[in-house]
Structure formats: C-alpha cells, structure tokens
Computed example of a mutant assay.
Amino acid sequence: MVAPALEVRDLVKHYPFRRGLFGRGGQGAVHAVDGVSFAVPRGETLALVGESGCGKSTIAKLILRLIEPTAGTVLLDGQDLAGMQGETLRQARQRIQMVFQDPFASLNPRLSAADIVGEPLVNYDHGTAMARSAKVDALFDRVGLAHHQRDRYPHQFSGGQRQRLGIARALALNPSVVVADEPVSALDVSVQAQILNLLADLQRDLGLSYLFISHDLGVVEYVSTTVAVMYLGAIVEVAPRQRFFSAAAHPYSRALLDAVPSPDPARRKRRSLLQGEVPSASALPSGCRFRTRCPKATDLCAEVAPAAREIVPQHFVACHHIETA
C-alpha cells in the first residue's frame, strides 16, 4: 500500500495563558487545533473548509513547522516532520511548499520577479547561476508569465500575476506537496478561475498533492478530491467531493452548504443560517463542540463528545445523530 503524500495524526496546538487579573485565576489554554487527523493521497487534493477562526491556517503553519505543535505527528512521504530539527528539517522542507492568501504581502517588494522565483534555488544552492536562470525561465513558462517580465517588481504585476509568481516560487524546489492557504480569495472571480485551472494543470502534469484551505465551497467543489470540514479546532466530517456535496451528514456541513447562494432562481431556497455565536476556543462546550448552535442537540450531545464513524466507505462523521442530520 502506497503511503499518503501527507498525513496528519492527532495534531494539537494549544496556546496557554493565565486567567484573571495579573494571572491569578489559574492556567487556561486556547484550543486552536485539537486532535486533527487526515491524509492527502498522492496526486490528489484534500480541501480543508470551515468558518474563519476554526484553525485551518494554524494547521498549515503546523505542517510547515512555522509554529511548533503541542502534540501530534506530521508525516511527509512517511517521514515525521514534527520530529525533525536543524538541517534535516531544512532539507525536508524542499518537498513541501506553500502558496499564500495574499499574493502581494507574500512577495518581497525589493526583489525582481526573477529573484523572487529563483531565491529558493539560491538558498539551497541548486546548480550554477546559469542553470538557475534557465530554471526561472522554465518556471515562468510553466505558470504563464512572459520572460520579459523577469525584471519587474511585484507592484508592477496584477493580483493574478503576483499569485502566479507565488506559485512559481513554490514550485522552484520541485515539491511533492503544496499547501495552498486561501490562494484565490483575494482575487477577482474571473482571475480565480484562471489560477484554479493553473493549479489543476500543474497537479496533472507534475503529480502534485494539494492541501487546499478555503472557506469558499464553490471553489472547494471545483478543486477537491476529498473534503474535510473543521469546526472550532476539530474535524467533524470527511468525505469524497461528490459524496460531500450530495449527502453531507453533519449538521454544520449542511448549514455551510445551505448558506451557499445560487444564481439559478429555480435552485434558490431559504438559507439555513447558523444561530448563535461560535464558542470561545478557550472555553469549549462540554461534549460536542457544535451543540450550542445545533438544532438537533440533545442531552447526549452535552455529555459525550461524538467520535468520528464511517457511515459509508470513506465518509466519516462525528455526530451522535447522523441518521437525522
């Protein structure tokens, strides 16, 4: 059996703090990520979705070791990234790269486009200067940028072109996994389609595996192979794309889908908007963390946290009332 390109097991990130005036109220913790597990098969896309603040971007930072996990394991091609240090970690990072949400803020405004794309090659001492320049040209071709744009600076590019630069930079070291954190949310709709098509072409041609983080279910339906839904630091549902969009079973997933507007009047329906506020990650509800906003919550939900169970092959749901959800 082939190992997944990326696998996360029981990943945890808690931020401890002292409660009360001058910290006299005891120790507390913000549960940003709380026991998350998932796998990204080779050449496929797992989309991680959920409301803002649910922990999606924190997971991306944990996977790339931009922040340190409280507990858990991150396996890249079967190797534990969480246990690596120093030069071993630095070398492993060549195989996993990130495309950021803001294509302007993620690029150094003082570097030319060619220097931005070629910087990883310099940092890892890949080839001669001539070979690196040729690689930059090839990357420009790959993402749809012209060679005459090499000497321009980020402010001289459009938003879509800047994101192409970011993608080219991410590809410079030939990674096997790309973490894309809201990569099209800052772009116009027409430009979003171009970037999504580019990512699909790159996946097909290079065999890339994507962890695609988004709150836009329209985008997720287009790019994903599998969908994982997060709520308040935990995953509540995982399903293949077609199964998720036709038969989502968790009440939170269904509420997210109901909230997606449709341009077709025949398909429009009254939106099932979530009620109440998202609980604080420093004071989680007992039992099911979604119960305070769930119309189907019972006493059992308040007493026992639901474990994820497989309701059909490859479709996992953490809910006590799946049959009525």
Rank of each mutant, 00 (worst) to 15 (best):
V179L: 09
V179E: 07
A180Q: 08
A180R: 08
E182D: 10
E182S: 11
E182Q: 14
P183S: 05
P183A: 05
V184Q: 10
V184F: 11
V184R: 09
S185F: 03
A186Y: 00
A186L: 01
D188W: 00
D188K: 00
D188M: 00
V189C: 02
L199F: 05
D201F: 07
D201T: 13
L202R: 11
L202C: 10
Q203K: 14
Q203D: 13
R204C: 07
L208E: 07
Y210E: 06
L211K: 08
F212Y: 15
F212M: 10
H215Y: 07
H215L: 08
H215W: 07
Y222Q: 14
V223R: 04
T225K: 11
T226E: 05
A228P: 03
A228S: 04
L232P: 14
L232Y: 12
G233C: 14
A234T: 15
A234R: 15
I235W: 08
V236W: 10
V236I: 15
P240A: 11
P240D: 11
Q242D: 15
R243G: 04
F244G: 02
F245Y: 15
F245D: 13
A247W: 05
A248C: 00
A249R: 02
Y252N: 06
S253T: 01
A255L: 02
L257M: 04
L257T: 02
A259I: 04
V260H: 02
V260C: 03
P261R: 01
S262G: 06
S262C: 14
P263T: 12
P265V: 09
R267T: 11
R268N: 07
K269F: 04
R271H: 06
R271W: 05
L273K: 11
L274M: 07
Q275K: 14
E277H: 03
E277Y: 03
V278D: 03
V278P: 12
P279G: 05
S280G: 14
A281Q: 10
A283C: 05
G287T: 02
R289I: 14
F290M: 10
F290P: 13
R291I: 09
P295C: 08
A297W: 10
A297N: 07
T298K: 09
D299N: 12
L300H: 07
C301P: 00
E303P: 01
V304K: 00
A307K: 09
A308T: 06
